[in-house]
């Protein structure tokens, strides 16, 4: 059919790993997704969910056990789309003995880039990822974050139409993470498609146009981010230090309680604004600190926890 505007399409894509002689393990099972062109697509899931497996299938590094897929309209693994994509692997590895420009020269040559054009591009990219002043370091002298930065530069050499990023902010300092986000947003600005894998939900939420949540090799939920986070017409109160006593008092008013997260923030839900304020007042009266009262738009983290723990996520 080949609709215009779909960068990646998979149909029941499945990878079953062999473990030992008899054992098998589903890396990713029956994945059917469509990634529209020009969007930032986030594939999120816990460790071992099958994110990297999916990426490698899309890159032709792994072969599907069943199902099929297309990248930029070409069948999986075809060398023809590789000139138009970039790939930032998880925990990237490079030739140890080269420095950043040498490494980029090597990869650039694989894209058929040469001479002045290539040198110019390398200088630009090293600047972009903040490695220009450390260009002479050899890879084995790099810190983890420096490797990650070079990995990004390497993936952008050919000005790809579609870029795959596996845990792109892993190992990056806060500045690096912000630069990373700006690079990704800039790519979208220029009409490129970004396929992002991560479990750093807080980083993903503001960036992604569309997400897919996978867990234990299965696709749990997919859709535009607004739809995924939409949680009806209710209101919510976010607060820390909510005591058991408060809970007992508001039991009749709230429609649900999300247990405190790592920062101790609990979410108390109510049907409308009036009830929400009532809840907030009660909690504040008992010494809790109310952070926010507002319409109930869930965070990606909440949706994720719901979905992964198997409680139907809308």
């Amino acid at each position: 059919m080949g609709e215009i505007g779909i960068a990646i399409r998979t149909e029941g894509l499945t990878k079953v790993y062999r473990i030992g002689i008899r054992g098998t393990h589903v890396g990713i099972g029956d994945l059917t997704v469509e990634v529209p062109e020009g969007e930032i697509y986030g594939l999120v899931g816990p460790n071992g969910a099958g994110k990297t497996t999916t990426l490698k299938l899309l890159l032709g590094l792994l072969f599907p056990t069943s199902g099929s897929g297309e990248v930029l309209g070409l069948p999986l693994g075809s060398p023809d789309y590789k000139a138009r994509i970039g790939y930032v692997p998880d925990g990237p590895y490079f030739y140890d003995h080269l420095n950043a420009p040498e490494l980029l020269r090597f990869y650039g040559a694989l894209f058929g880039l040469t001479g002045k054009v290539l040198e110019q591009r390398i200088a630009e990219l090293l600047e972009l990822v903040g490695m220009a002043d450390r260009a002479h370091f050899r890879v084995h002298e790099y810190s983890k974050g420096m490797r990650q930065r070079v990995a990004v530069a390497q993936a952008l050499l050919n000005d790809p139409d579609l870029i795959f990023l596996d845990e792109p902010t892993a190992g990056l300092d806060p500045m690096g993470a912000i630069q990373m986000r700006n690079i990704v947003l800039d790519l979208r600005q220029r009409g490129k498609t970004v396929f992002l894998c991560s479990h750093l939900l807080k980083d993903m939420e503001p960036m992604c146009d569309r997400v897919a949540i996978v867990s234990r090799g299965a696709l749990k939920l997919t859709g535009p981010i607004d739809e995924v986070l939409q949680a009806g017409a209710g209101y919510r109160v976010r607060a820390t230090g909510v005591s058991p006593e408060t809970r007992r008092k508001i039991e009749a008013v709230v429609t649900g309680i999300v247990e405190p997260d790592a920062d101790g923030v609990a979410v108390l839900k109510a049907a409308d604004q009036k009830r929400a304020l009532e809840v907030a007042n009660t909690a504040a009266g008992d010494g809790a600190q109310v952070l926010e009262v507002g319409p109930d738009r869930r965070t990606l983290e909440e949706v994720f926890i719901d979905v992964v723990e198997g409680q139907a996520g809308d």
Binding site: L61, P79, K82, Y87, Y93, Y95, Y107, F111, Q154, F164
Partner: peptide, 14 residues
Amino acid sequence: DKKTVDVILAKPVR
């Protein structure tokens, strides 16, 4: 082993 092959094969190299 060093996984350097991943990046290379993601490039237009058969």
